[in-house]
Design a protein around this nucleic acid. Structure first.
Length: 449
RNA sequence: GGCCCUAUCGUCUAGAGGCUAGGACGCGGCCCUCUCACGGCCGAAACCGGGGUUCAAUUCCCCGUAGGGUCACCA
């Protein structure tokens, strides 16, 4: 039997920001379609005209694109009213649906006409590819409403019509849709649509194991974007929430995930969203980016007041790259570090108390003075923009003979103004020879009073 | 509450009848070291409970228990 080409879809409703759970569902649909050489459709479910906005639609589409989940096809339900109308009319004509006059739910004083599906009141059993057979007695559903009017169809109806017309083969969605499935199957049978395969993904949970919501922090992809998470890391982490690649490897690119993805390792139970592990993935992907990519990504996070020309800013970032790779989990941390933290030394003159220059084993700060002066002489011999290794070889023998802490501590403080920072060799490599000498001079002056 | 789904370290997971139950994040210790960070090594940490089936159950079945989802003229 020849299998039909795989068609999957993500069907976001433009009534809010792109939710992290929607992003994950989109990713899984994308991976499954791409893995099988199939088609991935994005469908905007904007039948609720009161709540849907163009702005949300734009944001959602931009979010999916940012993640790299490009669609083969895009359409919106508000453009297809006549299609739904035709199907509704056909159902009414053959008696599987009917128009009912009844009091409005919003305003019981008003009488409205709605379209209801004639329920066969039977047991529906469908197969979920990861959970097995699931049965529902649809009697309790009654003759449910499928449209407010011929031109105002409701979610369950539009979903079924669109999936049918788009020849969707696999409906992959959140677990919260399990209970929607029987009523959608009822509609499928009414319009004569073939039943797709179903896959219900475990939900993404908050740390308290309840449904992830704003109450628990960020749920919009946008917020993680602003925090400085890379799309590669989002994709990687989200893929591994509720699914595993099987082996020990955890860091993957979208391309690798596409190759590896199968339904086999989809988890059945909900998965708690762990921001710590997410950050770890982000750092791993920061480390894997090329210098040029990382500079581009970081530049947007440099606070405006610290930006020079693009070329200047790029040059500073370029020298900061090793530090960023070593100690940054999110790009927002770079922004914070520049404003007031471990990266501020590169953008502003340090401000510190003279006593900080005193090495812990010294009785008095004045002992730092000759060491700083000697270090400065050695630094003067360096090229204008030395590498950290060059600085190290220039200073190492002296530091060894005098005592590393005795030399390196005050030097590091003079350059960074902080008790905790990267080593002085790296600092000088970032600042350059002249800037370093100037700061050491300032430190000496402070000691001399 | 009805219906439905689920259940391995704190978290994400590997395991698919017989393993000292493995890995990762986080956590603790040690090492490296001028401080921080990185890195390396080591460590603590789990099969929800009870019945079956079986020579043997974390693994298969049933019942509890717990958690979650869903009950719209939203999607």
């Amino acid at each position: 039997m020849e299998a039909k080409p795989v068609v999957t879809r993500i069907a976001p409703s433009p009534t809010g920001h792109l939710h992290i759970g929607t992003a994950r569902t989109a990713l899984i649909n994308y991976l499954y379609a791409r893995h099988h050489g199939g088609t991935f459709i994005v469908r905007s479910e904007d039948t609720d005209r009161a709540r849907s906005t163009k702005e949300f639609e734009t944001e959602i589409l931009a979010g999916l694109e940012w993640l790299g989940l490009e669609a083969d096809q895009f359409y919106r339900q508000s453009d297809r009213t006549s299609i739904y109308k035709n199907h509704l009319e056909a159902l009414i004509e053959n008696g599987t649906a009917y128009v009912s006059r009844e009091p409005s739910k919003q305003d019981p004083a008003v009488e409205v006409e709605v379209v209801r599906l004639k329920n066969q009141n039977k047991i529906i059993t469908f197969t979920d590819l990861v959970r097995g057979d699931i049965s529902f007695d649809t009697t309790e559903l009654g003759d449910f409403v499928i449209a407010r009017s011929l031109t105002d169809p409701l979610y369950h109806f539009t979903v079924v019509v669109d999936d049918f017309l788009s020849e969707v083969t696999h409906v992959i969605r959140g677990e919260d849709h399990i209970s929607n499935t029987p009523r959608q199957i009822l509609i499928q049978e009414a319009i004569g649509a073939q039943r797709p395969d179903y896959v219900h993904l475990p939900l993404i949970l908050a740390p308290d194991r309840s449904k992830l919501s704003k109450r628990h922090g960020a749920v919009a992809l946008r917020e993680y974007q602003n925090e400085g998470f890379l799309p590669e890391a989002v994709v990687n982490y989200l893929a591994l929430l509720g699914w595993s690649a099987g082996g020990a490897q955890e860091v993957f690119s979208l391309t690798e995930l596409t190759k590896l993805f199968t339904l086999d390792h989809i988890q059945k139970g909900g998965a708690v969203f762990d921001i710590e592990k997410f950050k770890w993935f982000n750092r791993e992907h920061i480390r894997r980016m090329s210098d040029a990519e990382l500079i581009d990504a970081v530049r947007d996070f440099v606070p405006v007041e610290y930006r020079g020309t693009d070329a200047d800013t790029n040059a500073v970032i370029a020298r900061l790259i090793p530090l960023i790779r070593e100690r940054t989990y999110t790009l927002k941390e770079v922004a914070d570090g520049i404003s007031d933290g471990e990266y501020s030394f590169a953008f502003a003159e340090p401000d510190y108390d003279t006593s900080l220059l005193k090495w812990k084993k010294d009785p008095d700060v004045s002992l730092a003075l000759p060491r700083l002066k000697r270090a400065m002489e050695l630094i003067s011999l360096l090229p204008e923009m030395p590498t950290a290794d060059e600085v190290r070889s220039a200073l190492w023998d002296y530091a060894e003979s005098e005592g590393r802490g005795e030399v390196l501590w005050p030097l590091r403080v003079a350059l960074s103004g902080r008790a905790q920072s990267a080593d002085p060799f790296t600092l000088i490599a970032v600042l350059g020879r002249e800037k370093a000498k100037q700061r050491i001079t300032v430190a000496c002056a402070k000691i001399e009073g």
